[in-house]
């Protein structure tokens, strides 16, 4: 059911959730901009932004679950992630995007775009990762 799916996603994607940026500023989740993530990563001691380009989106035999294949970072490492179709990724210059923006809006009231092949999502890696 949709309730079960909603409960498996963390609460901070719900519209109105308060998010603290690295400089201490508070913003609502729906108001976050690309710059907020970039500036927060800039002053973070241990995190840095990595770009993850969507290469493929596939449905699975499990309803409500998709596999998103990303090309990550300058080394273009291939990473496949199994996600709920309502899971929102943050796309550079666009904002929250999911495989099913209708479901994301329905469950979280979060304004959301359709995640598409070629979208560049914000992801994080650890600084000084050897």
């Amino acid at each position: 059911s949709s309730m079960a799916a909603a409960q498996t996603l963390p609460p901070y994607f719900t519209k109105g959730s308060i998010i603290q940026l690295a400089n201490g500023d508070l913003k609502k989740v729906e108001d976050l901009k690309t710059e907020d993530f970039i500036q927060s990563a800039d002053i973070s001691n241990d995190l840095k932004i990595d770009s993850s380009t969507v290469e493929r989106i596939e449905s699975t035999h499990s309803p409500g679950i998709a596999v998103v294949q990303f090309s990550v970072g300058e080394h273009r490492a291939q990473v496949s992630v199994e996600v709920l179709i309502e899971y929102p990724f943050f796309v550079f210059g666009q904002g929250w995007s999911s495989c099913s923006p209708e479901r994301t809006s329905q469950l979280f009231d979060l304004p959301c775009c359709k995640l598409s092949v070629g979208d560049v999502c914000i992801s994080l890696t650890l600084k000084n990762l050897k």
């Binding site: 609460p11 959730s17 603290q20 973070s44 990550v72 970072g73 914000i122 992801s123 994080l124 890696t125």
Partner: peptide, 25 residues
């Protein structure tokens, strides 16, 4: 009277998936 309510505040990095694949040597 307005009762003070605690409001959850989430750190910005919670919202970004960590994707840290093994880097080539």
């Amino acid at each position: 009277n307005v009762e003070p309510r605690s409001v959850a505040v989430f750190p910005w990095h919670s919202l970004v998936p960590f994707l840290a694949p093994s880097q080539p040597d």
